[in-house]
Structures are given as C-alpha cells and as structure tokens.
Design a protein around this nucleic acid. Sequence first.
DNA 1: CAAACACTGAAGCATTCACTTCACTATTGC
DNA 2: GCAATAGTGAAGTGAATGCTTCAGTGTTTG
Lengths: 111, 111
Amino acid sequence: MLHDPAQLDRMFQALADPARRQMVDRLSRGPASVSQLAEPLAMSLSAVVQHLNLLEASGLVRTQKLGRVRTCQIEPTALRAAEHWINERRLAWERRLDRLGEFLSESKDET
Amino acid sequence: MLHDPAQLDRMFQALADPARRQMVDRLSRGPASVSQLAEPLAMSLSAVVQHLNLLEASGLVRTQKLGRVRTCQIEPTALRAAEHWINERRLAWERRLDRLGEFLSESKDET
DNA sequence: CAAACACTGAAGCATTCACTTCACTATTGC
DNA sequence: GCAATAGTGAAGTGAATGCTTCAGTGTTTG
C-alpha cells in the first residue's frame, strides 16, 4: 500500500502548502483542467502548473493530456497512504492510553 | 473539532518534515524527553528543540517541564483533525466515483 | 558548592520554496 | 492560415527552512 518513505515524504510535503491543499479540495469534487484549478487561486498559471507538477510527483494527483487540455484527478490510494500513516500513530498512542487505564484501575483493585 | 484553517496549515506543515514525523512516530509509542527524542536523530539538540517547538505550535504535541526535563506527548485530537481533512476529500472523490458507476450501469440497462 | 545535565535562545548561513515574468509550443476554431 | 486558447519551461528573486555553533539558564547530584 505504498509505504515507500520517500513517497510519503513527497506526499506530506505536497499537502503542506495551502494552495496545493485547495487544489486537492477542488479535485475531490471532480476532475478539472489546469485553468479550472487555477481560477480560484490568486497566482499566475505558471505557479499553478508548478504546484500541480509537485502534486503529481507526490502521487496525490494523476493527469492526462488530451489535445491541449490537461485534465487532473485525485489518486485516492495516495491519500489513503497519508491517512494511514497518521491513523497508525494515533491508534498506537490511544491503545497505549487504554492499556495504561486498565493497569491503573486493576492496581486500584488490589489493596 | 479544530477546523481552524491556520491550525490545519501549521499541522500539515509540521508533518512535512521527516525528522518531525520521526519524532511523532517515537512519541506514538509513549512520552519522551527532548534528549530521548533527539537520540536517534543525526542533528544537534538545538535543532531538535526547534522542530519540537514547531510541533507544539501545530498542536500535534504537548509538553510539560518538570525540573530540568521537558516531557513530550502526542495530542491525538490534532492528529485526528489532519486525518479527517484527508479522509473527507478522499471520501468525496470515492462517493463521486460510486455515483458515476451507478449512473453508467443504469444507463446501460436502458437500451 | 561545584560539576554535570537538560535544555534554551540568538545569530548566522546555505538551501529550498513559492512565486514572478517572459518567451515559447502545441491545439483548436473561424 | 491566423488568432485565440491552454499550457510549458527557464531564469530570477525574496522569504522561509533547516540546520550549525556558541553562549547562556535553571536543576540535580556527589
């Protein structure tokens, strides 16, 4: 399920930028062309393309060009990998807390 | 559930660095002091403290100082917020795919 | 009390980032 | 074929990042 650490790195790096997250957000509602992605963003088309290339390199977005328009869509597997990383750490922590809680209430029973 | 966009920004920013993710990973297995966090990392203590301060500002980690040692632990609510952001986008995309699939198989039925 | 310990903070420095502009290449529509 | 469209690529710039070193500050411990 894509546990390549370098890939994970590029993914979190990609998600770190607000403009890129906004692009992912837009794409989560359906595919879009580069100019459509650019439209709500207060920056040049060129800047958007640079962000997009990063998103593609990170695996979060896939694009294909038909004629002169590049259509972009979300790659859910990559999103799932990032989600999974966070989830595992959080669960590890929470399981630890649970065990600690049990331990405390048990040792309370033993006078 | 902490939807402050600036906070989300700081969180993803914090997760973007491999050293900081390694620190979070370590903390998911239980609390640690600054020097314990620093131990596996190939950088100065000072650098680690700088990362740690970022992690704390992002809300991902909480610390408290007793005597001369600062003990750090994970703040699972923050992790959950990041997880949630990703999850929502992924689900939106997947629901869209599902609807599309239904639509296609339905229109196949109508000759 | 002195030395060791566990950080903390400021300054500096090299690299990376997020842009910009401008020039350029394919497509498409008239 | 020519103009408009959709995007690409390279170079440059200023700000942000990720370190380093070094000089502290409190806190324990022998």
